[in-house]
């Protein structure tokens, strides 16, 4: 083989390797979609249980990031999923166990729940029309459907706080429940409105800008 021929073969092999590597990268990127958790359907509607923690599990890629998790009714089974599958045009009863402390709202307006049935939530079993904005830890909000629910944080002097997920109900926590009606089929996004990303500029970097932590999707089917 001539020198030119060897050069052409070399370049071709190199280009093929580069293409395979790029293809693998794209393939892995496209298939690395966060998992989803479906609500449990009952005769009274659907039930969804979520947990919020000050830091993800220690083996998480970001073990210091605040995050949501899908849990079960007893907060035993923790799954790091932020895409929630809900039935369309259905009443969904949501329970959120919050193990994080307060960061305070930037806009006090979000201290009042909106979009829930009756415009109310229950906080640790008590029905309320809102919480003290300075005690807000997170907001579970689906802006496209007008839903926004403030979650009160645990006390700054809590004696038994949970540091990383998973957290069972023996740790200090608040329990917020509410009911809302899902819209028609579609993909909606949810987010938090409390600047809770400690260590990031204005509290809105890191987990607040990353799907899989304080942001996710509601897949209405």
């Amino acid at each position: 083989m001539t020198a030119v021929g060897k050069r052409i073969v070399g370049i071709t092999v190199f280009a093929a390797i580069v293409c395979v590597v790029i293809g693998l990268y794209i393939g892995l990127y496209l298939t690395n979609v966060p998992g989803s958790a479906a609500a449990t359907e009952t005769s009274a509607g659907a039930e969804l249980y979520l947990g919020t923690v000050p830091a993800a599990a220690v083996n998480d890629p970001h073990p210091t990031w605040v995050s949501y998790y899908a849990v079960d009714a007893g907060a035993k089974n923790w799954q790091h999923k932020t895409t929630y599958v809900l039935p369309a045009n259905t009443l969904v009863h949501v329970t959120i166990y919050n193990f994080d402390s307060a960061s305070a709202l930037r806009n006090n307006w979000f201290g009042q729940p909106t979009g829930t049935v009756g415009g109310v939530i229950t906080l640790d079993g008590k029905t309320t029309q809102g919480i003290d904005p300075d005690l807000a830890s997170h907001v579970f909000s689906i802006p496209q459907v007008g839903l926004a629910v403030p979650l009160e944080g645990i006390s700054a002097t809590a004696k038994n706080p949970c540091s990383n997920a998973p957290c069972d109900l023996s740790f200090d926590h608040t329990t917020t429940t509410f009911t809302f009606r899902t819209p028609g089929k579609g993909l909606y996004r949810w987010q938090c409105f409390v600047p809770c990303a400690a260590g990031y500029i204005a509290g809105f970097g890191g987990p607040m800008q990353t799907v899989g932590y304080m942001d996710g999707f509601i897949k209405v089917v």
Binding site: S103, A104, L105, P195, A197, G199, Y200, A202, G203
Partner: peptide, 9 residues
């Protein structure tokens, strides 16, 4: 101008 507490990090 949000209070410093409301600006987290």
């Amino acid at each position: 101008f949000p209070h410093a507490q409301r600006r987290a990090g």
